[in-house]
Design a binder for these strands. Structure first.
Lengths: 191, 191
DNA sequence: ACACAGGTGGCACCGAGTGTCATACTCGAG
DNA sequence: CTCGAGTATGACACTCGGTGCCACCTGTGT
């Protein structure tokens, strides 16, 4: 039973290090912040930093990868009679909640990712892992393979569009943007 | 007028280096191939390699970035009365031509990108640059901003889906896959 | 023959990431 | 309490991608 304890302690370390790193990234930029600086600020050795995060980028994305499972779960939780596209819309809308709740941090994170090339790239790799989970969730709703892939990819693309638009105009309402964006692509056979 | 000559010579060097590097990547993998090995195989110094390509990854993608402009041009070239989604489909279909023409190389490239994490990430960054060009092209067809962003992102996502499916089943016809994939998301207001 | 330009290689350096080892801590068994 | 096993940590050395700097060469125009 000490397994759970260690796992929780490890998670706490990860979040603490990630928050320390994030503060530095926001202040000085991602590329300009060295791992040594993060390690010193977090009170551990450079070597130990890499025991908690496989790379510097993971200090930014590590905690976000888990959201993919929440997203997929949200899709699965939608009523079965709902069309896939509507279910995807509802699931993405769920993710908007935490973002609006701590919108300053969310905005800072989006901005950081947006204007750091390596983070932009990594972001898309994370989307790729989300996509796989979404495709599985859609298979659970008996959506054919190709269609599931297209719908999942498109939904994530829409999510990105909404984030970009929100970043460009913080006054906009993300939920409204998302409804509008999802409406553009609603498949013809749906209501 | 020697400007043009130098530019052409530089391009020839780039393609030659890129081809040498590509061969090594396919044989030994991207991560396992060092820049020193590429430089030696291409007959220049490590330092000079980085004068032709800003990074090792660019030896893979450098030549592909230009395709974005072709893609955008293909959209602009479509008849004005065509709906944006149909125009995007037609433009993406154009890109399929060269891929089928040298399908072995295309397949090897797709496979290389697909199972190299850093290349997967970079690939998406390239898509991002393509997206910007597509959005501009759609603006030229007087498509509103949000809609243009959504349609361009979705079209590129669809293109990716097709590439993935083709990679998974080389016997499939990419053009047919693409038609099917584009049909999934055809906006309701279109024919 | 001269100066000047651009391409090139060599060298030193930085930062990310990894393997290895020696140490310190913790915790359960005796 | 003590011993030993398992684990976290730090220090060190090393590889590799990427950059700045400088010295060299080569061609071109005067």
């Amino acid at each position: 039973m000490t397994e759970g304890l260690r796992a929780r302690a490890r998670l706490a370390m990860r979040t603490e290090i990630a928050e320390t790193a994030f503060a530095l990234f926001v202040r000085r930029g991602f590329e300009q912040t060295t791992v040594d600086e993060i390690a010193e600020a977090a009170g551990l050795s450079r070597r130990s930093f890499f025991r908690y995060f496989p790379s510097k980028e993971d200090a930014v994305f590590g905690l976000l990868y888990d959201l993919g499972e929440e997203l997929a779960a949200a899709v699965t939780a939608r009523p079965a009679e709902e069309t896939p596209w509507t279910a995807l819309h509802a699931a993405c809308a769920v993710l908007l909640g935490p973002m609006l709740h701590r919108s300053d941090e969310a905005m800072a994170l989006l901005r950081l990712i947006h204007d750091t090339p390596t983070l932009r790239a990594r972001h898309q790799d994370k989307q790729d892992s989300w996509r796989k989970l979404l495709v599985d969730a859609l298979h659970g709703r008996s959506v054919p393979a190709l269609e599931a892939d297209v719908l999942a990819s498109a939904a994530l693309a829409v999510f990105d569009v909404v984030c970009r638009q929100w970043l460009a105009d913080p006054a906009a309402d993300p939920a409204a943007l998302m409804a509008e964006a999802f409406a553009v692509l609603r498949p013809s056979r749906e209501a």
